[in-house]
Structure formats: C-alpha cells, structure tokens
Design a protein around this nucleic acid. Structure first.
Lengths: 212, 212
DNA sequence: GCTGAACCTGACCATTCGGTCAATCCACAC
DNA sequence: GTGTGGATTGACCGAATGGTCAGGTTCAGC
C-alpha cells in the first residue's frame, strides 16, 4: 500500500481534516482572517490547538485551503454558454445554481465575503484572471442576445453582479434577514420562495423573452 | 473665539476624534471587530496608541460609536411612505438613496457588513426593533399597491432585500467589482450607470406602473 | 510481540493584544 | 511669572496570539 512520500491517508486523518476544515470555515467566516484564532478553531473542532496545527500546518495554509475549496465550488458552477442557448433558461439556471451554492455552503459564502471585504489579498489573481474571463465571455453572449432582441440591452456585467449580490445576501447577511423576518433560520420553503422571486423579477426586469 | 465652558481646545479634540473615527472605520471595515487592532488604527490615524485610547476610551466604545454613526445615516435614509404615494417614485427613490449611501460611505457600509457577518452581536436590538418595524410598514404599503394593481404581487420583504443587497454589493464587494471590471476605482459615471440599471430592472421586474 | 510511522499534546517561545498609568507637555487665564 | 486642566505618550501589565518541539501514545504490518 505504501507508495510515495506523502503520509498515509488514514481514516483518522480524513476525519480530523474534515472536522478542522468545518470549524475553521465557521470561525474564519465569522471573524475574518486576522480575527480568527487557532485556539477558537481548535475549540470549535473539539481538538487541542497543537493538533489543529499538526494537520493544518499554519493559519495561512488553513485559510488558503478553505478558499481553494470554495473557489472549486464556484468553478463547478460556472458552466459555459452559447449565444444559441435559450436566454430565459440560462439566466434562470444562473440564478438557481448561485442560490443553491449559497444555500448549500453559507459558511463558504461568508468566508468569501470576508476575504473580499479585506481587499481580497488572497484572491486577486483569481478575480483578475479566470473569473474576469468568465464574466466577459458571458457578457458577450448577453450582448448578442440583446442585439437579437431576445432581451433588453442592459449592461451584462451589472446584471451578473445583480445575481451574485442578490443571492449572496442570504448567506452573508443571514443575521440581518433572520432578525428582520423574525425567524431562527431559513427553511427550504423560504429559499424556494426567494429563488422564484429573484427569477421572476430579474427575468422580467431584463425583458427576457422565450424563443419558443 | 467663543469663551464658554468649551474653549477652542475642543478644536484639537474634535480634529483628533474625527481622524480616529475615520481610521478606525477603515480598519474595522477591513478586518472586523476582532481582527482590528488599536495599534493598526493608531498607525492609520498617525497617532500613538495611547492617544487613540485616550479619546476612544476602549476598542468596544470606538466600535459602537462607529456603528451608531452608521445607523444614524441609515435612519436618515429611511423615510416613511404612504399608500397614496406614487410606487415608481417611491421605489426609485429607495434605490437611489440606498445607492447614494453606499457611494458616500463605503467604509461604513463595509463596517456594517462585517458586523452582520459576525452575527450582528451589537446590532441585534436594532435589527429586531426599529428596522424590522420599518420593513414591515413598507411591506404593507407594497402589498396594498399590488392589490390595487399598481405593481406585481411580489413578496415585499424579498424586494427590500433585493434593493439592499444589489446596492450594498458595490461597497462590500468593491475589490471583486474592481478586479473583474479592471478598474482602479468606480467613477461617478459608473455609479450613475449602475443606479440607472438597477432602477430600470427592478421597477420593470416588479411590474410597477405609473398612475399618471 | 516488535517496529516504525503516524498521531497526539503539554510546555514553551517571542510577539502582539487591549488597556493602565504616571510623568510630562502645553496653551491660556490670572 | 504661575497655576490649571486638558492633551500627550512611553513604559508597563497580564492575557492571548501563532507557532515549535520534545516526548509520548496508538496502531497497522510483519
């Protein structure tokens, strides 16, 4: 079984790494990179501080690992589209997949928000690289749709930001949403209601017409 | 030259308090409550740490003072409306005033975001109190407008959150917006373009009709 | 049951944290 | 001058920070 230099991937290793990542995501999302302490992460994970550092290496490595995990989830969502696709389907799918990501990984969304809030020191490259390319390629398709009269001629970049912000909100500002709506948590029904609302308003607001 | 109980020594006091508040808002917005250090605030203000504490009292007092300043700006924006008002005017004014707040006080917006991200420990009361009341009173008006056929029957609370999130985004996620759009800052023209986009899409998306 | 690698962790380190305090500075009224 | 009261700040405190390390335990493979 033993083959390379990397330590054996034991069951206990996987379990501890998972526990540590979950705890760290929670603490980093709540308090940001600087505000998070390894001691707090260790307590959330139910492990001694030394044990956390044994697996994580360092605070920075742990943080970067979490960002990379979240970025890979983002990338899995960023499918490509073609001008021949159906605008309504694409934009609705865009909203729904982004909302699903917010719903399934609220901690990761908040971690991302905290990273951007501090000026995105670890994500500059990603933002100015592949994410920008993805936005621009989508923007070109939206513009072509507008030229063909399939939707209004709105700025496609602002439209993308609108979808991102409107969905992201329910993770990042959850405390505000819960406080104002007098809930202790958002249920599946709430998310369905919000998603339907956003699809309806944004599609109509952009004048998206179905080709069918 | 006024010679009452407060001599012009207060000028020094006011100046330092202002400088400290600005520096603290920047650091707190970037790193959150825990992640911000008084030393960092002092350096940003160009003052010794002791001097910052002399005026601020404590880290907590400084943070609370900043939150209160930001909340008073929020409240100044939260005008009341009546069912007899013009829906298009009210909602457009709502979007524009929120966007203006984002534009004029991005640091304060980010501070607010960081506070919510950490679970709003200092703002629970405000969120569950006057802000909730304001949202509910607005929501009732929106519902009446929908009953009268002046706009679509969308959930008014989700609509309010949509406006908040879409505008807030350009302060909180500024680093992302700048990275993706390849800008070094957002100009007045950009803000005008974004605001017009949001008014157009959201008004149309809610089916707001003018009574005129 | 032996062995070695992986796992675990209390003790420790230098630095930074929020905060205190006494000494000093300084502008102005007397 | 001299007193006065706020403004200033370096020195200092105990606690917490990220990180290291030595010495221990556990356990699978032989």
């Amino acid at each position: 079984m033993t083959t390379t230099t990397t330590p054996d991937v034991t069951r206990v290793r996987l379990r501890n790494q998972r526990v540590i990542l979950e705890a760290a995501e929670w603490v980093f999302a709540r308090h940001g990179y600087r505000g998070a302490s390894i001691q707090a992460i260790a307590e959330a994970a139910g492990l001694p501080k030394s044990n956390v550092l044994y697996y994580a290496g360092s605070k920075r490595e742990l943080y970067v690992a979490l960002l990379e995990r979240m970025m890979s989830r983002w990338n899995a969502m960023l499918d490509d589209i073609s001008v021949d696709d159906e605008p309504a389907e694409v934009i609705e799918g865009f909203i729904r997949s982004k909302m699903a990501l917010t719903r399934s990984h609220p901690q990761g969304s908040r971690l991302f928000a905290a990273e951007i809030l501090q000026g995105a020191p670890f994500l500059q490259e990603y933002l100015r690289g592949e994410l920008r390319d993805w936005v621009e390629s989508r923007a070109r398709v939206f513009e072509q749709w507008a030229q063909r009269g399939l939707m209004d001629a709105v700025d496609p970049v602002w439209l993308i930001f609108l979808v991102w912000s409107a969905t992201q909100h329910y993770a990042d500002f959850e405390a505000q949403v819960l406080g104002i709506t007098d809930r202790s948590s958002l249920a599946d029904d709430d998310y369905r209601s919000i998603t339907d609302f956003l699809c309806r308003v944004i599609l109509k607001g952009c004048g998206v017409v179905s080709r069918r």
